[in-house]
């Protein structure tokens, strides 16, 4: 059994909240460069340049790249031989969110009651935490701040197995088309296929953590990723929805076994600020 101090967890979460909002990943910056080359629309090219400039300012001046600094979504891989000491794990994560969003001048976007008075909690807590217990004595913390503009365009559908992969493609393309200019294209698309309703949604979100440019290890899934990206980019939505060739920078698909009678599919959309930072304790 290895001990990890709750205070260390809080400190790490605080740092990751800030870094995720200030420093866009190398994979996204590379995708901007390639997108600028591929984009034919003059307005679209101009938007890519503005996004590059925006990322530079955010990183250099340590300010958030977007004012919607999001819900603090936390993916936790908790080694089964880890013992958290000096406090409660969930409290430590929320303490880290409070500190990171406060000291980092990040926007507080959480309301306590989804219906009713929708009063802001004032410190961006609580985080949304997904925990997976894994072998080992380490703890991997990933922070993926999620803005509402793109999150609101997500969806899940329980398809009949008879519609097969064609039904999956149709659903994804319909959602992206319907989302149009709203989720701040160029977008990154996470698709979860299989499992149950909530499992499909969760793996769709987890798919967004896989770097842009890295395909699924399953050849048929990788082929689906390529095909979906091609089809999405034929929709013509383009950067910011003003028309263009580059609607999506990348599509990541994750799969999971499912019931003989089910074909759940979920799509989770990320805006171009495809943010996530991780640390291992």
């Amino acid at each position: 059994m290895r001990e990890i101090q709750a205070g260390k967890i809080a400190e790490t979460v605080a740092r990751l909240c800030m870094e995720a909002n200030y420093d866009l990943g190398e994979d996204v910056l590379k995708a901007f460069k390639e997108g600028l080359k591929a984009e034919e629309s003059p307005a679209g090219q101009d938007i890519f340049k503005q996004l590059q400039e925006n990322a530079r300012i955010a990183a250099e001046e340590r300010v958030p790249m977007c004012q919607d600094t999001g819900v603090a979504v936390v993916f936790l891989e908790l080694g089964q031989d880890v013992h958290v000491v000096g406090g409660n794990l969930v409290d430590a994560i929320n303490e880290g969110v409070r500190k990171g969003y406060g000291e980092g001048y990040l926007r507080k976007s959480m309301v306590a009651q989804p219906i009713g008075d929708r009063k802001n909690t004032g410190d961006n807590t609580p985080a949304v935490i997904h925990t997976e217990v894994v072998p080992g004595d380490k703890m991997k913390i990933t922070i993926a701040p999620k803005g509402a503009g793109s999150e609101n365009m997500s969806g899940v559908r329980m398809l009949a197995p008879a519609v097969g992969v064609e039904g999956v493609k149709k659903f994804v393309l319909e959602r992206v088309k319907e989302a149009g200019s709203n989720p701040c294209p160029p977008i990154v698309i996470g698709v979860g296929i299989g499992g149950t309703m909530e499992k499909a949604a969760l793996i769709a979100k987890r798919a967004l953590l896989r770097p842009i440019g890295q395909h699924s290890k399953f050849p048929e899934v990788a082929a689906l990723e390529t095909e979906l990206l091609e089809k999405v980019n034929k929709l013509g939505i383009g950067p910011q929805g003003l028309g263009g060739r580059v609607t999506a920078l990348w599509v990541n698909v994750e799969v999971y076994p499912c019931h003989i009678a089910s074909l759940p599919v979920a799509i989770n959309i990320n805006c171009h600020a495809s943010r996530h930072k991780e640390a291992v304790l």
Binding site: I47, Q50, L51, E53, N54, I57, A58, E61, V63, P64, M65, C66, Q67, D68, G149, S181, C184, Q240, L242, C271, H272, A273
Partner: peptide
Amino acid sequence: FAAVGGAGALIAK
């Protein structure tokens, strides 16, 4: 009018 969504650091200037 549309401003560029997600270019918040640049727009703040």
